[in-house]
Amino acid sequence: MSDKVEKDEISGTDTTGHEWDGIKELDTPMPRWWLWTMYGTIIWAIGYWIVMPAWPLVSSYTAGFLGYSSRGSLETELAEATAAHADDRAALVTMDLGEVKNNAQLYQFALRGGKSAFAVNCSQCHGSGAQGAPGFPNLNDDDWLWGGSVDKIYETVKYGIRSDHGDTRIGDMPAFLTDELLTKEQINDVAEYVLSLSEERDDTAAVDQGKEVFMENCASCHGENAKGKQEFGAPNLTDAIWFYGKDKDIILRTISRGRGNVMPAWVDRLDDATIRQLALYVHSLGGGE
């Protein structure tokens, strides 16, 4: 490499002084429009630093004169969206829930709002598809502990089940072994009987004895035909749906130690329109009565 800038003979342009096998690299200057565009972006950047949030400081950042923040713009947009639907929300609150379905536009609004509210507030326990889990009911099916009409669902969402709200509904499955209400044999018999309601059991003696125990201890809540009573939240024991699982050990555990899951009350956390949206959405999942 020489110190003197070398000129290429043919093009008259400076070379970089680099040479490979006789080929010299030209030091062609950048196109002018490109250069000016680059200067333009630098000027733009300086302006941006002044008006927009840009530089991190030790415990904060330069906020910029426009006062923009992405959180702020989100809040604005959310407020605008809520305001844009103010009429629909007002209509939803005043209308009888059973009537909403007759208003296609309002019904769609309710279902969409319900879906997003469900994803935020309910899916943690009931699952994103409302498919439930052992101990958390599946909301798609047609088996309801506390009633599957849209008004009943609304009540459940609003006040919860066994929640700390005064209007909540309570129904306890007693702990028959822990509280020494039944013996281990009796509990085994009644579990056999409950299973016999939906499948063939071999131990017919236990089933027969279990039926007697059931009539004395369980029928008051679950009904003499064991089809459950929604006013107590007592499940139907004859169908194909098992809240905690169809397994004798699980049934034994339920009878022995009792059950009492909690559905929180949402009345103090969500506004009425959202609770109504949720009720309509859950009702639309396929099992609504």
């Binding site: 409302a130 099916d141 749906i241």
Partner: peptide
């Protein structure tokens, strides 16, 4: 077809898809 849930068991034991 709905993918979540894939299917739902109804109280009479039949299967429902959405």
């Amino acid at each position: 077809r709905d993918r979540n849930p894939l299917f739902v068991t109804l109280s009479d034991g039949s299967i429902r898809n959405g």
